[in-house]
């Protein structure tokens, strides 16, 4: 997949300055003097890509320089993350950090090429959204209790689809199985789209999906919500009961934020954090995020760094229990 196209005139302009000054000093002088590249470690068209594009629209206007998305998918979002971790901290390379590459990957990958906390300057949490269990409307069990009973009584157990092994969606299935002892058979797919097709086609009765990717199908009635892995009922889908309400203590959020390579100068961190905050405060942007079921996050750079560190610890036991491990 080709992705890294940047207006080259902009790079030319910076060429001369680049030779004369160390990267950091130059960046501080008049940041941003050049287009900024935001690495999205997922393929175009997915939730992360969508969130990034909604954000960059506003950010481009506020920073006065284009913020250009570069999709670098691969190996559970770790390829793009590793690339940013190794880039110069000049504020011109940013990362759409996320639960996969910053939260889960440190426990999932044995030979990760970066440290999810120390190799980055974490700047802002952009959105959070819960994971949700959805089912084909014709699937008989309604509540989680009924689902558990079905899984125990059906001779073959219960199939639940997910967008892929090691995703937060998969890990919620693992958590669910452990909490209830239900016989759950995880069916991994290559992305949420094909999995959703098979749920609608009744190949698999249930699926664990992130809310933004399921929202449209929930609204159109092609699937039914079974349980939401949020702490309280979700404002966009108040009719879907939470896992906690149904007696299972599982809260699982996907999250997306903006990070940069470690050592980003403080003035740039402050500016970025402020501008992102302003973009996210825009009612139109908030409304768009709300529509897809994502909640806007509000964390200071230090707060986001602590959040990432806490997430790494949170996922460690879950990944361990899932038995998933990648070299």
């Amino acid at each position: 997949m080709m992705s890294g196209l940047l207006p080259r005139r902009a790079w030319l302009a910076g060429g001369a300055a680049m030779a004369a000054l160390p990267a950091v000093a130059r960046a501080q002088a008049a940041w941003p003097a050049q287009p900024i590249r935001l690495v999205v470690p997922f393929a175009p068209g997915g939730t992360t890509d969508l969130v990034a594009r909604l954000l960059t629209q506003g950010l481009t206007a506020r920073l006065g320089q284009p913020v250009i998305i570069e999709n670098r998918p691969g190996a559970g979002a770790t390829v793009g993350s590793a690339q940013v971790a190794a880039a110069a901290p000049d504020g011109l390379t940013l990362l759409m950090s996320n639960v996969a590459s910053q939260g889960v990957a440190p426990s999932l990958y044995r030979n990760l090429r970066y440290d999810a906390v120390r190799d980055f300057t974490h700047i802002a949490l952009v959105v959070e959204n819960p994971v949700v269990f959805v089912a084909n409307p014709r699937f008989v069990p309604r509540s989680l209790t009924e689902v558990v009973r079905f899984a125990q009584e059906a001779p073959r157990g219960l199939d639940i689809a997910s967008s892929g092994s090691g995703s937060t969606n998969h890990l919620l299935i693992v958590q669910f199985g452990q909490a209830t002892g239900a016989r759950v058979n995880h069916v991994p797919y290559r992305g949420a789209g094909p999995a959703m097709t098979d749920v609608i086609a009744e190949v698999v009765p249930m699926m664990s999906d992130s809310l933004p990717s399921a929202a449209g199908h929930l609204r159109s009635g092609s699937v039914r919500g079974v349980a939401m892995a949020s702490a309280a009922r979700h404002p966009a889908f108040p009719e879907i009961a939470t896992f906690r309400e149904q007696g299972i203590d599982a809260v699982s959020n996907s999250w997306f934020g903006i990070s940069a390579p470690a050592g980003l100068p403080a003035p740039i961190v402050e500016r970025l954090s402020r501008e992102i905050g302003l973009v996210l405060a825009d009612p139109a942007v908030r409304a768009r995020f709300a529509e897809i079921g994502a909640t806007v996050g509000a964390l200071s750079p230090a707060g986001y760094a602590d959040f990432v560190a806490a997430e790494v610890e949170k996922w460690r036991p879950v990944v361990l229990a899932s038995g998933a491990q990648v070299d």
Partner: peptide, 26 residues
């Protein structure tokens, strides 16, 4: 169904959602 069949379609879904339109049966 609102389900993209390939990467190009996935991008079109993205473009629609950014415009506030959810592709699908409705």
């Amino acid at each position: 169904l609102g389900i993209p069949a390939n990467a190009v379609m996935a991008l079109m879904v993205g473009a629609l959602i950014i415009q506030g339109i959810q592709p699908g049966p409705r």
